[in-house]
């Protein structure tokens, strides 16, 4: 494995940048626009977004590490099949865990937990990163990307919950005087909120670029 001893000074910096990129520069939702189905469907409340995000953190971290560990023994013709088997194993574990310990959340997320198997963020990271990098870097990359996904989902779910139900994580934040916007809880609300988030991210990026120029 060539990438283990390429200078320890750089490893720390590189790990950090691989971790942090998932939150902004390569945010899976806002930049890569991957995994849109769970992103739009389950984020009717902040807690749903958080649970979905944490399930993805577990699945992605586990599968990225395993994929990276076995990357040199899996023939390239069957690599996707192998990755899917690995990912499906972790997803089924999460699904059983939620059913056993958090039944209400499991019901709220419904079929979207089993559908993590086909979430393209996870397969995407396995194929594009974990199958080509060391275990340590793959772990860091998976943690960064999946926590970036989680933060984005909590944000999206939070905005929809506040405007649609006047609550945040179930706590009342807007007074009785505020008429809830029911549309925020419906599918259009997800698209509208995501659109504004994408716009805001690009606006901030552009402003930062302009500032650097002068």
């Amino acid at each position: 494995m060539a990438d283990t001893k390429s200078g320890d000074i750089n490893t720390g910096n590189k790990s950090f940048s691989e971790f942090i990129k998932g939150f902004w520069k390569e945010n899976p939702v806002l930049v890569m626009l991957l995994g849109m189905c769970p992103t739009l469907a389950v984020t009717t409340s902040a807690i749903n977004g958080l649970t979905m995000g944490l399930a993805v953190v577990f699945v992605m971290t586990g599968s990225s590490v395993i994929v990276s560990l076995v990357r040199n023994i899996v023939p390239k013709q069957v690599r996707i099949a192998t990755f899917v088997v690995i990912i499906a194993t972790f997803v089924t574990m999460v699904d059983l865990f939620l059913k056993a310990f958090l039944l209400d959340l499991s019901k709220a997320l419904g079929p979207f937990i089993p559908l993590i198997v086909v979430n393209c963020i996870i397969l995407g990271r396995a194929e594009a990163f974990a199958s080509r990098n060391s275990v340590w870097l793959s772990l860091v990359d998976a943690l960064g990307v999946s926590f970036g996904f989680t933060v984005t989902l909590v944000f999206l779910g939070g905005i929809r919950e506040i405007l649609g139900m006047r609550t945040f994580f179930g706590m009342s934040v807007l007074g009785e005087g505020f008429e809830p916007w029911v549309i925020m809880l419906l599918p259009p609300g997800a698209f509208i909120t995501l659109g504004f988030m994408l716009g805001a991210k690009n606006l901030i990026d552009r402003k930062m670029k302009e500032r650097k120029k002068y």
Partner: peptide, 16 residues
Amino acid sequence: ILTLFASISGGVLSIV
């Protein structure tokens, strides 16, 4: 390889 992975996966899942 694929058989090996599927068997390990099946084993782990049955324990869980």
